[in-house]
Nucleic acid binder design. Structure first.
Length: 422
RNA sequence: GGAGAGGUGGCUGAGUGGCUGAAAGCGCUCCCCUGCUAAGGGAGUAUACCUCUAACGAGGUAUCGAGGGUUCGAAUCCCUCCCUCUCCGCCA
C-alpha cells in the first residue's frame, strides 16, 4: 500500500507507475484522492461534533457532582440531537474509509527509476550471466533420470494427494534435505537469524504481505478455521514483526527460513509443469530483510549476491534478470530473478526472486522504527529465495549426470553424503 | 473438548460510571546536584488520524484484547468473538 500523502503529492508519478506495470486504466488514482478528500472532510466534521459533545458531557458531570440536576437535564436535552448526528457521521466515515482503503490496496507499488519499462519477458534486462550453458544433446531431462532411479514418485503423489504433490524417494529426498541444510547454514553464516514458522496464516497476515487482495487465487485456504496455507515463507516471516516499532539498534532485522510452499498454480500446463518445473507443494529457503529506507537498495544488491553465490557454490550456470516494470508484480519496486540453466531441458528455470518492496508491505503491516526522539518512520522490506528447491534439484540432477545415468554429488554437498554419487 | 480465572501504557500494577489517556513503581531521556564502581532532586517519556501553521508548534478526535450495545458520559455495565493462565480430558 502506498502512502496516501505520497499519492497526493505525486499523482502523475503514480499514474505512470500503474501504466508501466501494464494497467491501462489509471482512474483509480483520481478515485482514491477524491475518496480521501471526502473521508477527511467527514472525519473532521465528526471530530468537531464529538468535541462539543464531550465538553457538554463534562459539564453534565460537573453539575451532577454539585447536585444541580435541573441544569444538567437541560444540557442532556441539548445533546440528544448531537448523538444522532454523531452516529450518522460515524457510519458515513466507516463506509468512506472502507472504500478509500479498498482503492488504496489496489494501487500497485511504484517501480524504482532503475527498472526498465516494459511489458513482456523480452523487456527484462539480463543483468548477469555466470558459467557456460551445457548444450550437449545427450543430456537427459531430470524426469527421465529420476524415473530411471525411482527417485521421485509422481504417480503415487497423484494417488495420495493429486498432481503436483510428488514423493521424493531415497537419494533425492536426501539431496533436498542436504540442500535445505546447506542453504540455511549459508544464510546463518551471512548474519540471518534462522526462523521456523507456522505454515498457516490468518487473513491479516495474508493482507500484510499483499497476497490479499492481489493474489488470493494463488493460496490454498482452510475456510473452516479461516486460515491461508502459506505460498512462501515470506508471509509468516515478514509478518513476524507486524504492528511493531523497532528501536534503532534493532534494524536491520534479517531472517532465513525453510518452509514448504503451497501454490494452487491455476492455469498452468504443458512443459511448464513437467517434472519438477512447477509443483503445488515445494520446498524453499527464504531470506527476509527489514531495513532502514536509505539502505534498502544496497540491501537488495547484497541479497541478490547472496543468492547468486549459492548457485556458484553448487557450480550451476545461471543468469540474473532485472525484471521490467510490467513483469515484476504488484508489490515490488525492484526485482531480480535468478534463473538456473537446465541442460536436460535446454531452458532457464527461475530459482530465486529477490525483491525490494520499499515501504509497500511495511505500511500495511505497520512496520516502523524510531528514527530519533521525534520521528517514527516506516521501514523497508525485502525478500529473496535462497533458494527454491525443486528446480535446483532438477538442475543438479541434469548438470551432474554422467553418460551411464549416474549423478554425481556436488562438491559443497559432499559433507551431507557418504558417497560420490546420489 | 469441559470447568474456572483473566486480558490496562516499554514492563510491573492501581483503577467498578463523570476532573482517568489513565495512579504508583520500574525502565528510559534530559537537566541539576554530587569527586568516584553509588546515591539524591527536578522535568519528560504511547500510537493513529484530522484541523490550523511557511516552520517551530498549537488544538481536536480515537484507542485500556477486538467488535457491537446501554448511557448525556464507559477501562469501569451488557452481548459476541479472540487470546492467555489454572484444573480435567486427549495427545506427537
Amino acid at each position: 500500500m502506498l502512502d496516501i500523502n505520497f499519492i497526493r503529492d505525486n499523482k502523475e508519478q503514480v499514474e505512470q507507475a500503474i501504466t508501466n506495470k501494464g494497467e491501462k486504466d489509471t482512474s483509480i488514482v483520481e478515485k482514491v484522492l477524491d475518496m480521501d478528500e471526502k473521508w477527511r472532510s467527514k472525519v473532521h466534521e465528526g471530530d468537531l461534533i464529538r468535541a462539543e459533545s464531550n465538553t457538554k458531557a463534562k459539564e453534565i458531570g460537573k453539575l451532577m457532582g454539585q447536585g444541580k440536576k435541573e441544569e444538567a437535564q437541560a444540557i442532556i436535552r441539548e445533546t440528544s440531537e448531537m448523538k444522532e448526528k454523531i452516529k450518522e457521521l460515524e457510519e458515513e466515515v466507516r463506509e468512506l474509509s472502507e472504500e478509500r482503503e479498498d482503492l488504496l490496496l489496489k494501487i500497485p507499488n511504484v517501480p524504482h527509476p532503475s527498472v526498465p519499462v516494459g511489458f513482456t519477458e523480452e523487456d527484462n534486462e539480463t543483468f548477469k550471466t555466470w558459467g557456460e550453458t551445457d548444450e550437449r544433446e545427450w543430456l537427459k531431462p531430470h524426469w527421465e533420470l529420476t524415473e530411471k532411479h525411482g527417485w521421485i514418485d509422481f504417480k503415487r503423489g497423484v494417488k495420495v494427494t493429486g498432481a503436483g504433490f510428488p514423493f521424493y524417494v531415497g537419494a533425492v529426498a536426501q539431496l533436498q534435505r542436504a540442500l535445505i541444510n546447506y542453504f540455511i547454514n549459508e544464510g546463518v553464516k551471512a548474519g540471518y537469524t534462522e526462523l521456523q514458522t507456522p505454515y498457516f496464516v490468518n487473513e491479516d497476515s495474508a493482507r500484510g504481505t499483499g497476497q490479499i487482495p492481489d493474489k488470493e487465487d494463488m493460496m490454498y485456504e482452510i475456510p473452516r478455521d479461516e486460515f491461508f496455507v502459506i505460498p512462501t515463507a515470506e508471509v509468516p516471516v515478514t509478518n513476524f514483526h507486524r504492528d511493531e516499532i523497532f528501536e534503532l539498534n534493532e534494524v536491520p532485522a534479517k531472517y532465513v527460513a525453510y518452509t514448504p510452499c503451497w501454490r494452487r498454480e491455476a492455469g498452468s500446463y504443458g512443459k511448464d509443469v513437467r517434472g519438477l518445473n512447477r509443483l503445488h507443494q515445494f520446498d524453499k529457503v527464504e531470506l527476509v530483510k527489514i531495513v532502514k529506507p536509505e539502505d534498502s537498495y544496497d540491501e537488495l544488491e547484497s541479497l541478490r549476491e547472496h543468492a547468486e553465490k549459492l548457485l556458484e557454490a553448487l557450480e550451476l550456470p545461471y543468469r540474473t534478470l532485472l525484471m521490467c516494470t510490467g513483469d515484476m508484480g504488484f508489490t515490488q519496486s525492484k526485482k531480480y530473478d535468478l534463473e538456473v540453466w537446465s541442460p536436460g531441458q535446454k531452458r532457464w528455470l527461475e530459482v530465486s526472486s529477490c525483491s525490494n518492496f520499499e515501504s509497500f508491505q511495511a505500511r500495511r503491516m505497520q512496520l516502523r522504527y524510531r528514527k530519533d526522539e521525534k520521528d517514527i518512520e516506516t521501514l523497508h522490506t525485502l525478500n529473496g529465495s535462497g533458494l527454491a528447491l525443486p528446480r535446483v534439484v532438477a538442475a543438479i540432477i541434469e548438470t551432474y549426470q554422467e553418460e551411464n545415468g549416474k549423478v554425481r554429488v556436488p562438491e559443497v554437498l559432499k559433507p551431507f553424503f557418504d558417497r560420490d554419487h546420489l
